[in-house]
Amino acid sequence: MSYANLSPEVRRFIWPIAGLVLLLLVNVLISPEFFQLEVKDGRLYGSVIDVLNRAAPVALLAIGMTLVIATGGIDLSVGSVMAIAGAVSASLIVSGVDNIALIIGGGLLAGVAAGFVNGFLVGYFGIQPIVATLILMVAGRGIAQLINAGQIVTFHHDAFAFLGVGYFLGLPFPIVLVIITFVLVQLLMRRTALGLFVEGVGANASASHYIGINDKLIKLMVYCISGLCAAVAGMIAAADIGGSDANNAGLWLELDAILAVVIGGASLMGGRFSIFLSIIGALIIQTLTITIILSGVPPKFNLLIKAAAIIIILLLQSPEFHRQVARFRKWRGA
């Protein structure tokens, strides 16, 4: 079966996965031991595990961002929400709270609260998503700095540190958290009517409203989920370094999350979405970073190479690009 005969749904999956496979093969050529895995003390080690582990925060952000973009919105505040969640958990620890449930619960509550503010501004006040979330993107770091009293807060808490550096069934725990989050959100979106509601609101919010879908509530819900995912990513980041750095936690990761969703084939105009492909997009971004490092390219070229590779991947996904290529071939044949 030729590419032209494939359904649009199948085509959506081909290029992101092909891009990831290509990058992995390049890594194998550069470093033949790239796929080698080693078990030490019941834990898996290797370059592939490192890629998955380092991609975990962006993958978590991409899961929530996928739903927001599917409704035709955008969430620029996820990096700042990471900083807030990390600051809340760190402040609870240094204040003497030892109950891990309260520490994690505080971070998650902060994420949901941030998502609620974004969703309320977008859904119920009709503020443009890029403006509404830009407010918290800027103010969020200020809130995190206020929580930390302008300092980098360090702490020692073994149970909380497990979120960032622990292992479960041989895998780094951040990877496990991504898997759990993906399964839960995927079940919520594909085994209930919520997924169709999200796609309907993204495709045409007005029409969805007139057929009885509460588009305001759907938007509020997806921003809360985005905030929740960002909170988990923020606590992973804080647990990994044993501290909360309000200035640098999650800095610019919102851009990587948006890019991961776009690489996964989602339209910024809203509508159909794939959480799985968004995670593939996050893996592509992290694998590309590892590829550049392994290739020994001078650091000053890293961002340019990364941008060029991503442009190529996006062009390969573009139906218009394929149409232009087909026209060019036809013109040359004539």
Rank of each mutant, 00 (worst) to 15 (best):
M269W: 13
M269Y: 14
S206P: 11
T287R: 08
E199Q: 01
P298C: 12
G265D: 11
G271F: 00
V232Y: 08
I258L: 14
T289G: 10
L314Q: 12
I211D: 05
S295F: 10
G296A: 04
I310D: 12
G195T: 11
A230S: 13
A203F: 09
I263T: 02
M269A: 15
A238Q: 06
G212L: 06
A249T: 14
L316D: 02
N302P: 07
I290W: 11
S274T: 12
A239Q: 00
L304S: 01
G296N: 04
V262F: 03
C224L: 05
L288E: 14
A307K: 05
M221T: 15
G202N: 07
V222F: 00
I211A: 10
N247W: 15
G212A: 01
K300N: 15
L255H: 08
L283R: 04
L251Q: 09
E254F: 04
Q317F: 02
H209P: 04
I236Q: 02
F301P: 02
A205F: 07
D240M: 11
A205D: 12
Q286C: 07
V232N: 05
A308C: 12
H322S: 10
A238H: 05
A257Q: 05
G296L: 02
S208M: 14
S244I: 03
L288R: 11
I290T: 15
I218W: 06
L253Y: 10
I292Q: 09
L288K: 04
K219I: 07
R323N: 01
A246L: 07
C224K: 03
